[in-house]
């Protein structure tokens, strides 16, 4: 680890100005990903600005019925929040499916969104990686690709985004509040992360120095019947092979509305717009769910070791939607 300076942010404006003014500065949240990267030599900031003690640690109800989640709210507190559990259970389930109890007590909402891929080549500085060092080439393309993308990848990068929380937030149409040197803006969480394209070194659309201050959940009554399912190599404490976040709204024997996002399949949480479009107005039947999943996955391009993800994503989606339909029909 290279030497670095540490400052505790006194206020949001000052934190943003400090990091924006130094290209080698970084915000520090819980540190569970950044400090690991500093140990591994993947990240080498010369200044850390600790934002965990800023007053961004509350979950507040919004006037329109939604929720505003401060960026410093710990993953464990958010998962246990009563409003989240009752009104957006998919978000609690996604958080509880991630990491471990002792990591969730440290990890923050903002940091969870900005965590980086667990691609083994990205984390190993002795192997080429375009995300870590643009132009080096991608080791995973011809290497061990069990955990890599099947949708939206490029010849420059096949990494997947590791967050469970972000998959649930994508299905819920959450907005990300961002403060930069020039003011505040809101980015839809579905637009926060990028596909790799020619520039896999950019995980998100944020500029250096922009700080996530909150995540806003819209009022969404259908989210009370929502679910997160994560499929992984062991029963707990592992990253997703495939995951599904979904909410289903049935009315008079047809699907009035549906929200679906997939995890573990792409460089970003994958909003399944094709499957959603196929299902709106359709009857809640297993063959409809299957056809919708197949439509979403039609363009999948598996690598040497991850062809299983395509049927796994399809089957997981059918299973989650069937459960939600059964729940509502009871």
């Amino acid at each position: 680890m290279i030497p670095f300076d540490y400052r505790r942010a006194e206020d949001t404006d000052g934190a943003v100005a400090t990091v924006a003014g130094n290209p080698r500065a970084a915000f520090l949240g819980g540190g569970t990903n950044l400090v690991d990267h500093m140990k591994l030599g993947v990240a080498e900031p010369e200044l850390l600005v600790d934002v965990t003690r800023l007053p961004l640690d509350r979950v507040d109800r919004l006037p329109g019925g939604g929720l505003r989640i401060g960026a410093a709210v710990r993953n464990s507190d958010l998962a246990a929040d009563h409003d989240v559990r009752e009104r957006y259970p998919v978000l609690s389930q996604a958080l509880l499916a991630g990491a471990s109890g002792q990591l969730r007590n440290l990890a923050t909402t903002g940091g969870n969104l900005l965590q980086r891929t667990r691609c083994v080549y990205f984390q190993d500085v002795t192997t080429p990686c375009n995300k870590r060092e643009p132009g080096q080439g991608c080791s995973a393309l011809e290497g061990y690709s069990r955990y890599h993308a099947v949708l939206g990848a490029s010849r420059h990068c096949v990494a997947v985004h590791p967050s469970d929380m972000a998959v649930a937030l994508t299905a819920l149409d959450a907005g990300v509040r961002v403060q930069g040197p020039d003011g505040e803006r809101t980015v839809a969480v579905a637009d926060l992360h990028r596909l790799p394209g020619e520039h896999p070194e950019w995980d998100t659309v944020l500029n250096h120095g922009e700080l996530i201050t909150a995540v806003e959940l819209p009022e969404l009554p259908m989210a009370a019947r929502s679910r997160y399912r994560k499929v992984r190599d062991r029963a707990s404490y592992a990253f997703a092979l495939v995951s599904v976040a979904a909410a289903l709204d049935l009315s008079g024997g047809t699907i009035r509305d549906v929200r679906i996002a997939l995890g573990g399949v792409a460089h970003k949480p994958w909003r399944a717009t094709l499957a959603e479009a196929a299902l709106r107005g359709a009857p809640p039947a297993a063959d409809e769910f299957r056809a919708a999943a197949e439509a979403e996955l039609a363009d999948a391009q598996p690598l040497r070791d991850n062809g299983f993800k395509v049927p796994m994503a399809r089957n997981t989606l059918v299973s989650v939607l069937s459960e939600l339909a059964g729940e509502e029909l009871r």
């Binding site: 540490y6 002792q102 007590n105 440290l106």
Partner: peptide, 16 residues
């Protein structure tokens, strides 16, 4: 137990 809650300490900076 860090301020009463379980936490890993290998990725926590002492200064923070």
């Amino acid at each position: 137990l860090l301020d009463g809650r379980r936490a890993t300490t290998c990725l926590a900076l002492a200064v923070a």
